[in-house]
Design a protein around this nucleic acid. Structure first.
Lengths: 203, 203, 203, 203
DNA sequence: CATGAATGAGTATTCATTCAT
DNA sequence: CATGAATGAATACTCATTCAT
């Protein structure tokens, strides 16, 4: 009974948190951090403003949670898919496949990721940076292994990992920068892979 | 006399504007857009707050001018240096040389460029996007010529141009993301060139 | 059974109420009325916030009850002790003895009494004022009798009674005002008695 | 010219500050600290809310300034009048004369002084306490001189000084406590003087 | 009876912008 | 041209109170 009670409450809490983050991504995605208001997020989530503060301590905390929770999901799936592959080449492919799928399917998250990640890393300091670093380090590990296995030419793995992440972001940034003639046939994923793979492959 | 008067006035105006933008870059660079205040910028520039509004219409306008004026300078110099080179390879080298020199020498501008360019492109809409596009299109033109000359493999030139710009930004972003073990010998410029050149060169 | 049930319930209710008031005095004493929160009181009392409202109608009511219940106790005991004395002189002594003992033994109540009684009398209106008046009137009655018996010089008994109460408060206020060189040998009770007695005694 | 300009500006500033404090005393006096709002004070002062913050940093600062500025004036005048007297007896009389005149003539200040001084001493800490102490110490010095001159019986001068101040407050507190039958002929000043003087005089 | 999640009115404070001098 | 005092709309956050479970 206690267990059920706890489970129920936990479930409710998790549901509310998810609801809030969903609303937050929508509002932050549309308005940007500065212009987004807590009232707007609460209204979007269909709850009272005060209720938000039962689940998150501040606007900052909401933003951080909304951005990183999704970012973590994306990274976790990419990691899983990469581990299922043997070669570095296929690991890179898998990583790109997952990331492109994620960013294409979640417009709001994409906006937050592309336009505010940079600023938030600097302003929010620690937690955001740590996450970014963690993800980069994982990719760097994969690339380093590729170098040691002779699949890749010798390179600074951390820099290459960062470059790969920024390339993905960059391709999506083209949209927001209002690039013209967006060729509907343009395959960003393939483009990034070709550029990066040719850039780092041995020989 | 009238001419001279006008010239004097124009000179003063230009001097004031430059002073303001310099101050703005310092304040925006240190605090980020949202936390920077017009009071702070005025104080830094050593003029009254009201005076700012004689030269710029709004905080937004100041930010935009501070960011783009420097961005334009960087691009203009890069363009000049690129035109002095014959091969696409050397044009790319020249572009990177200028951009890295600029960003290394101006910490404040670097911060604005890396952390707020993305957000501002989306939020400020037109003017910022147009500029970004213009720069990308110039680089795309160079790359397209390279493709046609057989120096580069066939590729989406606009995407490649964007990728190059984002790679430069990405290398500097590593700093702000608090990347560890920043190898003091790490040569970001060379790294970006190698990655990109190998990524796009023919064969 | 019903009787027992009622008695049990009443006992429980009284116990709860006492518990709540104890907690309230602690919280109000530490934080002051405005900064004290109902959550804090509930936590201190070890019950849920909603439960508080089963026993008291509002934060105000809790404050009022916490302050006056103790004030009443203090007065009741002072009254008893005064009645056990024959002369006005000894009645005054008894009153001071009880009041000083109470205030010295209950730091939290002391704080509420000294720092917020004044404000609350005005803001809470009726009930608090009535109580204050009742206590003052009792003391005034004693003093008036003293006047009529020739023990005290002719005076406005109500004013003198108020003065005595304020003097007691004033001595304790010295602490909160951060008075220096608090002589550890200083006997506030004796001091107030000497001042007041000399001030009101006949001749 | 510069001097005039400065003087003008200073005059304006002082005028505004006085205006604000006047309004603040009215609002704080009527509602008490907690219920008073900054909006109300601004409205009462006939200026915009933001303007308040050009002159005072916070609601707390306004309250503190409103209370202490008047308190200081009262003390300064009392001090002057006391110094014009030779005997301790007349100095005490002078002090009471000034204080009663002040408190009778400024209902709003009286309310703040009587009902919130205690709480604020504790909550605002340092500045308020220091002021209270300073005033008490001055009076204590006078009383101590009286003791040494044989005019007063030996006593704890600081305690007696505090007692005198609290007696004054106490007499006015009677009003707010809704004391009945306020004899219109009752002379509070004389009453406090008699009580205190008889209480402390030699013999 | 007891709970504590939900509410939303209420408030101090900031800051871009204006305009009288 | 230059100033900076004045403005007031905008907003994050709090907390007493309620009520469904």
């Amino acid at each position: 009974m206690t267990l059920q009670g706890k489970t129920k409450r936990q479930a409710l809490t998790e549901f509310r948190e998810a609801e809030i983050l969903e609303a937050a991504r929508k509002v932050f995605g549309e308005h940007g951090y500065a212009s987004a208001t807590v009232d707007l997020i609460a209204a979007e989530a269909g709850i009272a403003k005060g209720t938000l503060y039962l689940y998150y301590d501040s606007k900052d905390a909401i933003f951080w949670a909304a951005l990183t929770s999704r970012f973590r999901e994306m990274h976790a799936e990419a990691r899983r898919e990469m581990e299922a592959q043997a070669s570095v080449r296929e690991k890179i492919r898998a990583s790109l496949r997952v990331r492109f799928a994620f960013l294409k399917s979640d417009e709001q998250f994409l906006r937050m990721y592309v336009t505010e990640f940079g600023a938030m890393c600097r302003l929010q300091g620690g937690p955001m940076q740590a996450l970014y670093r963690e993800v980069a380090e994982h990719m760097a590990g994969v690339l380093q292994a590729g170098v040691e296995a002779g699949e890749l030419r010798p390179l600074n793995a951390m820099a290459a990992a960062t470059a790969l992440m920024e390339l993905v972001k960059g391709v999506f940034a083209m949209r927001f920068a209002g690039m013209p003639g967006q060729d509907p046939d343009f395959d960003g994923e393939q483009f990034v892979f070709d550029l990066f793979w040719n850039g780092v492959a041995a020989q």
